[in-house]
Nucleic acid binder design. Structure first.
Lengths: 238, 238
DNA sequence: AACTCATTTTCACAAATTGACACAATCTGT
DNA sequence: ACAGATTGTGTCAATTTGTGAAAATGAGTT
């Protein structure tokens, strides 16, 4: 009845489908290095929902929100694209999500026909893309069960934890989180209103878990407490 | 302010990354046809959460629930595997989800090393897997925004609509839905309690949208109303 | 510096949804 | 036919979050 946490979704070697000795992405990086650069301003789109998938992108700098529009004008943010991320992946002919810049952003743009060529020349690349997208899937599933049944404070804690882990993985400080997105974006991501996000952040601050000097800079003061908040699937055993 | 529904996520040709003339899955099917069959009884697992990914599976008959356990013993059902589905995909070394049979189920089991061999021999296969998993991703995103912000009745309507579409895609009657899973499973899938699922189905019946002769057989009486329920992202413009 | 606009924080209030518990009814399989 | 599992309903409460509004903060501009 307790959280035994059976060695969960920490990063695992993700090489299973990749043929030994095959391309490990070097060619993709190489291709991307020569791909054209594109700069987009805040509010502009890398691609719109439903637009034909002509390119895949790698975020060089900046940040984007990946979203889908709901009927009534609201939107569901499905994720964010930060520097280093590949975005625009998928097998459909058209983008299922839109990608809008949250700050000035530069992208490497690799035309899909060229990507196809590269895949033909080096089949290992397909495995690389497969990995990238299955990570996205794992991520989506993670978010799914951290949002569908949980309260605002747990959702926000999850969000912060996620960004912290990301920092960690990239050698940045896991205790300082820079938010390129607004409270509204976070709300659309977590299924909350922006007021609730704000209120919840204040609550976390009041509890001493975080520190908010500037509204877009979060310092994690008590990482353990945050993690417990995320892990506690209502074992309110206090 | 209205639902313009810009030609959304209906199925699109999903051949973009696939090299022209490449394998369209025939080899995978061929390999699977020769793969060993495995029968599992209700309640047994095709694979457990966290178990090494030794095989990928194709569901020949039956149905499975794909789930992840939460800390307190509850679980989040992330999806279901029906006949024809490939399950066990992913790039991680271990399964992130468990797969438990909801009814007697038979599976084709393709060992991953063999899959790797096949991919080496026929690189187009990787593209096939890529497609399969990006469909899963699209699916997860769909579910995500149909669950995170919405009420029980909308969630249940979404669930039924989804199964109806699946039937349609496979040539079955889109108006008759056989549920291999219990109310509890549905609840775990939609982030509701089983009581709420039951109550909500009754409500849908009371409204004349559905018909429940046997508890595991749903007849959709008013498909339009159901679709509106799903689409209506609270345009309660009434 | 002053002003404007956008973002964020905070407050007060309602209230609607769903979970919880309990029990009846129904179904299933042996 | 019986026992156990699953499902349907009823009542109840209460917790959470949305809503609306307004103040505070911050950024950018002239």
């Amino acid at each position: 009845m307790f959280s035994q946490s059976l060695a969960p979704n920490t990063t695992q070697p993700a090489v299973y489908l990749r043929a030994p000795g095959a391309d490990r992405g070097e060619e993709l990086d190489h291709g991307l290095a020569r791909a054209s650069l594109r700069k987009i301003a805040v509010g502009e789109h890398a691609f719109l929902e439903g637009a034909p998938r002509s390119y895949i992108f790698k975020v060089e700098s900046g940040a984007l929100a990946l979203y889908r529009s709901l009927g009534d004008g609201r939107r569901q943010v499905l994720g964010f694209g930060f520097d280093g991320d590949l975005i625009g992946l998928g097998a459909r002919k058209c983008h299922l999500v839109g990608a809008q810049a949250l700050k000035p952003t530069t992208l490497r743009c690799l035309p899909v026909p060229q990507l196809k060529q590269m895949i033909n020349a080096n089949p290992g690349l397909a495995a690389r893309l497969y990995e990238a997208i299955s990570e996205e899937l794992a991520d989506a599933q993670d978010r799914f069960f951290n949002v569908s049944q949980r309260r605002a404070i747990e959702r926000v804690a999850f969000f912060l934890q996620k960004l912290s882990h990301r920092n960690e993985a990239r050698g940045a400080d896991p205790r300082v989180i820079l938010l390129p997105m607004s409270r509204a974006d976070i709300g659309d991501y977590l299924g909350l209103t922006l007021e609730t996000v704000s209120r919840t952040l204040s609550e976390l601050r009041a509890k001493g878990y975080i520190c908010l000097k500037e509204s877009r800079v979060v310092q994690l003061r008590n990482l353990n407490a945050l993690n417990e908040l995320v892990d506690s699937a209502s074992d309110d055993v206090e």
